[in-house]
Amino acid sequence: MNILVRHPVVAGALAFVASASILVLANDVWLMRLTELLIWILFAASLNFLISFSGMVSFGHAAYFGLGCYGFALSAKAGVPIIVAVMIGPLVATFAAAIYGALCVRLNKIYFAMLTLACAEITYSVIHQWYDLTGGDTGLTQFAPPSLDLGARGFALLVLACCAGGLLVIRLVLNAPLGLVIRSVGENPGRAAALGFSQRQVQWVAFVIAGSLAGVAGTLYSAFQGNAFPDYAGMRFSLAPLVMVILGGLGSFFGPVIGAIVEKGLTGVLSHYVVFWELIMGVVVITVTVYSPHGFWGLIKRVINKGAPRG
């Protein structure tokens, strides 16, 4: 166990190989579930990068997820080759994050959160009301071949590669000098400014990175579901990854992975057995927040650390 904690790269590589073999062996039902889970992990990880490391709590992260969906869906519908369309999705999201981000990072804390919420709601409303382009409430369907013609298994592996790639990017950024600057601004903007770093610039870069990764997740989600709805940019899709990040545990790299697994797992199991599963989820969310602010990952870490020798 100890070596896994000391060398996250080893742990990550092992997890990747293990996940890939599970995907190769899984039956069709599980393949679908796991594919969706991987997309959510990527989405939650991109938000966690903002919240836990850059000190920015976004209430509107779904904007970039939704724009990833629609960027892909609309361009595929317009006849752009699929391979190009999957690039356009994240690009649209990145572009939007660059514009929204430039405005949002001017504000702090609760006002930042409120402006991200406003940006997301504007995006949602535009998608919702621009009937001629987006189809409004009815959404878009049948714009791309199911699973991008890769087969369910091939598509699942592609999603795994993207998810792992996304996590790797976050890890590399965090460990690079850029990441150190981002983290220092996140922890203590005043001190970072004293060291000569522009808070706004650094936060903007982090915001754009998070937005583009959410765009990748959105594009994959749209390809996976074979549709795009305005809801994907709506409040529900902004809150869901937030809940995952909290359940997993603030301030940790693997938190959102655990959080997404717990959230999706619990929802799946509960909704299978009881009608009022959302109530139970609500109670779980409140209990975890109040009693274990570091979430499930915090609990796991405590267990591992107990077993390992101190030093």
């Binding site: 919240i51 709590v57 804390k109 609760i110 809150l239 937030l242 809940v243 909290i246 603030l250 009608v275 009022f276 599963w277 959302e278 109530l279 989820m281 609500g282 109670v283 779980v284 969310v285 409140i286 927040t289 109040v290 602010p293």
Partner: peptide, 26 residues
């Protein structure tokens, strides 16, 4: 959780949203 981070306080109220929505639905 008054002493905790703003984000945690907010998430607790989100949990309450989920609970109330289900109560109403049931």
């Amino acid at each position: 959780i008054y002493h905790a981070e703003e984000l945690l306080q907010l998430i607790v109220t989100v949990g309450m949203v989920m609970i109330m929505r289900d109560v109403v639905r049931v």
